[in-house]
């Protein structure tokens, strides 16, 4: 149990470091995906070690979180493509103007 939680914490930290520091917008999104996956691993680990594994809450949470993460990836990557078309760059530093 602790091993899973530690792996999850490590994944979250790695994703956070990437999302905070990388300059490519796609890699920032990848870091966010890693953080979401770390949360999912926690859900499943706590479900596995809960008192009654027949209660489906943990698994359902993970499944719905995966679905929401897929939606987030869709919109995020569409935004990256739109920004790239506008600024001719996928670099988050170049997209600093709010006025098009």
């Amino acid at each position: 149990m602790k091993t899973y939680l530690l792996v999850s914490a490590l994944l979250f930290s790695v994703g956070l470091a990437g999302a905070l520091t990388r300059r490519n917008a796609i890699i920032v999104l990848v870091g966010v995906e890693l953080m979401l996956n770390a949360a999912n691993l926690n859900f499943v680990a706590f479900w596995r070690h809960s008192a009654d594994p027949r209660v489906l809450d943990g698994v359902m949470f993970a499944v719905f979180a995966i679905a929401v993460a897929a939606a987030e990836a869709t919109v995020g990557l569409a935004l990256v493509i739109a920004i790239h078309r506008h600024f001719k760059s996928a670099n988050v530093d170049d997209a600093s103007r709010m006025k098009g």
């Binding site: 790695v14 890699i27 870091g31």
Partner: peptide, 8 residues
């Protein structure tokens, strides 16, 4: 974790 570190 190693692959995640490499990815970042």
């Amino acid at each position: 974790v190693g692959a995640a570190v490499a990815a970042m």
